[in-house]
């Protein structure tokens, strides 16, 4: 008798818990759907357009100097988690690691990585892309300035 009661209680208890967990999952799933849906609109709006002075490219052009390289990095929203990018890039000879943050700054609001370059050193953009991938993120496009001050765009060959 006692065992039956305990079993009944356990089953009833388990059902209640399962029900509560289901509700939590439903709330979670709804939330995930909403934030992903909202996110798609943000993504489309942030695509750079060279003809628009308010475009991402134009913003980058106004931010970087001739001795800097900028990379739009998808997912780089936390400077702590992006320490691996800093670690990987700082070993390259073309990166000027003197000064703050070893010459590598991440703007997490715009997911823009800015790398300070050594004077007269040409950056190896492929290596930069590789470091970002190994750091766990996705490089979208790199920007440098040409001798005429014009913004040059570099696209990864093998996007992951």
């Amino acid at each position: 008798m006692s065992t039956d009661k305990t079993q009944t209680f356990t089953n009833s208890n388990l059902m209640k818990i399962t029900h509560k967990i289901n509700i939590l999952f439903l709330y979670g799933a709804s939330f995930l759907f909403l934030h992903n849906f909202g996110h798609a609109g943000t993504l489309a709006a942030s695509k750079p357009s060279s003809s628009d002075p308010n475009s991402f490219s134009a913003k980058v052009s106004s931010v970087i100097s001739d001795s800097e390289l900028a990379v739009k990095v998808d997912g780089a929203v936390c400077s702590f988690c992006a320490n691996g990018i800093r670690k990987g890039l700082s070993k390259y000879e073309f990166v000027d690691t003197n000064g703050k943050n070893k010459g590598i700054t991440l703007d997490t609001k715009n997911q823009l990585l800015i790398v300070r370059l050594k004077k007269d050193r040409k950056p190896n953009v492929t290596k930069v892309f590789d470091s970002i991938l190994k750091g766990g993120y996705k490089p979208v496009k790199a920007y440098t300035k040409g001798v005429d001050g014009k913004l040059l765009e570099h696209v990864p060959q093998n996007k992951k």
Binding site: T42, D74, G75, C78, Y137, K138
Partner: peptide
């Protein structure tokens, strides 16, 4: 399995 998007990861 990571996904990196424009404003999120």
């Amino acid at each position: 399995r990571y996904t990196n998007a424009s404003r999120a990861t």
